[in-house]
């Protein structure tokens, strides 16, 4: 968890880590939304199709298994605009962990899910997929520190 006192500072640090780790970066951010003309399944499968050279059925099988892991099979065919905030977050996490040897970077999670009071849900999601990524970093503002009480997440 990395907390910053200003937006400028946070953005600078985020840009630095994105530049340093671009080959294994799995970004979860509103600045990297799901592709709107693809279903959730295709959004998740796209990474393995493009970088792993997998065929559409192969990549979609993996994506489907990952959705099942979070009990989200029912959103596979849905598109970004109809997702609930928490579903969108989970889809972005699953897309991020499709990156080989992923370093998951979650950029201001409470901006993605403003209704959350604490990190309980985020921790739960990350624990469910903790075998799929190498490390995870959360970037947020210092004034959200209270919402992060109760220990930190795997690798962060």
């Amino acid at each position: 968890m990395r907390l910053y006192s200003s937006e400028e500072l946070l953005n600078r640090e985020l840009c630095d880590i994105m530049a340093q780790e671009k080959h294994r970066l799995g970004l979860v951010s509103l600045d990297a939304p799901l592709i709107s003309n693809l279903s959730v399944l295709s959004n998740i499968a796209l990474i393995k199709q493009y970088h792993g050279g997998l065929t559409v059925p192969e990549a979609e099988d993996i994506a489907e298994m990952r959705l099942k892991k979070l009990h989200l099979e029912d959103i596979a065919a849905k598109r970004n605009s109809v997702l609930l905030e928490v579903q969108r977050f989970c889809a972005m996490i699953l897309r991020a962990v499709m990156v080989e040897d992923a370093m998951v970077v979650i950029d201001r999670p409470f901006k993605i899910m403003p209704d959350l009071d604490d990190t309980h849900f985020i921790r739960e999601v990350l624990t469910s997929v903790d075998d799929l990524f190498r490390e995870c970093h959360i970037f947020d503002y210092l004034w959200n520190e209270e919402r992060y009480t109760g220990g930190m997440i795997h690798g962060a």
């Binding site: 600045d31 493009y50 897309r95």
Partner: peptide, 20 residues
């Protein structure tokens, strides 16, 4: 329109971030 919408929605940034 599709490309313009993707640009406005920052979806092109998504492709960039995931090295697509």
């Amino acid at each position: 329109a599709e490309i313009a919408v993707m640009k406005v929605n920052k979806e092109l940034n998504t492709l960039h971030v995931f090295r697509i």
